[in-house]
């Protein structure tokens, strides 16, 4: 196995490991809000690992730049998705798991206009 193959394998394996961990988090964590942590965070490094693996595999500047662009887009969009999921859950009245304290959002939303104090 060449060095490039080893690096590709290591990066991809690391990526897959983190994606796996984020799925474990989705199952084990108790409520929407904590699960968003798992999907929004562990998945980022997982996807980055796989994309970097692809970039190393092809040893091509064009592919590397494409992967870099994908990583940047992913870092921009993943937190937005996490925010939208959390916000939608709170607005539709999904209760956080028992023991969630403090809850500064309690009563802060105007559910009709969806404005937030």
């Amino acid at each position: 196995m060449s060095l490039l193959e080893i690096v590709t394998l290591a990066l991809t394996a690391l990526g897959v490991l983190f994606i796996f961990l984020s799925s474990v988090g989705l199952i084990r964590l108790p409520d929407v809000y904590t699960r968003v942590h798992a999907s929004g965070k562990s998945a980022t490094l997982g996807v980055v690992g796989v994309l970097l693996g692809v970039a190393v595999y092809y040893v091509d500047l064009r592919v590397a730049l494409e992967m870099l662009a994908l990583i940047v887009f992913f870092f921009i969009t993943a937190p937005v998705a996490a925010h939208m999921l959390d916000r939608a859950a709170y607005l539709t009245g999904v209760k956080p798991v028992a023991g969630t304290a403090p809850d500064d959002l309690e009563g802060a939303y105007n559910r009709e206009t969806r404005s937030l104090r």
Binding site: F18, L21, S22, V24, G25, R28, L29, P30, D31, Y33, T34, H37, A38, K41, S42, T44, L45, G46, V48, F75, P96, V97, G99, T100, A101, P102, D103, D104, L105, E106
Partner: peptide, 24 residues
């Protein structure tokens, strides 16, 4: 980001989930 993922992995893999989540 790297740190966040390691922290997350540790929480997810810990045998007992002892969480004290909150909205701040």
């Amino acid at each position: 980001i790297v740190k966040a993922n390691i922290v997350m992995a540790r929480i997810v893999l810990s045998p007992q989930l002892r969480l004290q989540p909150g909205i701040i």
